[in-house]
């Protein structure tokens, strides 16, 4: 069972109170982009065993989207953070590093 704390309302939500939004921090490539970029945006996703960054929505509560950093292998949650950022903030990355030294996710370390 996965419990994520919504950063907007502070509720410790059960996974079943949330809606999963897939991989976090995608760059949208639309009109004017190359075929390769558009394909990456639409289809290419990380599928790590370990550190992962995701989007979730507190659908049975305040309704807000947020981000979560967690391990897909252990279900450990490193932290949740605002939806209004393009990369994980320093404190979240530090929390991941404290538990998983040397982690890498896309071009983030």
């Amino acid at each position: 069972m996965l419990i994520l704390t919504c950063p907007y309302c502070g509720v410790a939500c059960d996974e079943t109170e949330l809606s999963a939004g897939g991989e976090a921090h995608l760059t949208r490539h639309g009109p004017g982009s190359s075929d390769g970029e558009f394909e990456d945006y639409l289809f290419m996703r990380e599928n790590p065993r370990g550190v992962h960054f995701e989007r979730w929505r507190h659908v049975y509560g305040c309704g807000k989207w947020f981000h979560a950093a967690r391990s897909t292998a252990t279900l450990e949650v490193f932290g949740t953070y605002s939806a209004q950022v393009l990369i994980p903030p320093d404190d979240i990355r530090a929390a991941v590093s404290a538990k998983v030294p040397g982690w890498q996710w896309r071009d983030l370390t």
């Binding site: 309302c9 509720v11 079943t16 109170e17 049975y60």
Partner: peptide, 24 residues
């Protein structure tokens, strides 16, 4: 509900939005 119903986690005066079985 999956929400924590202990008084320490849902005290009098606090509102918890959650689900009851399959509905909000």
């Amino acid at each position: 509900t999956p929400a924590d119903m202990r008084p320490s986690h849902l005290p009098v005066g606090e509102v918890r939005r959650t689900r009851l079985a399959q509905v909000p």
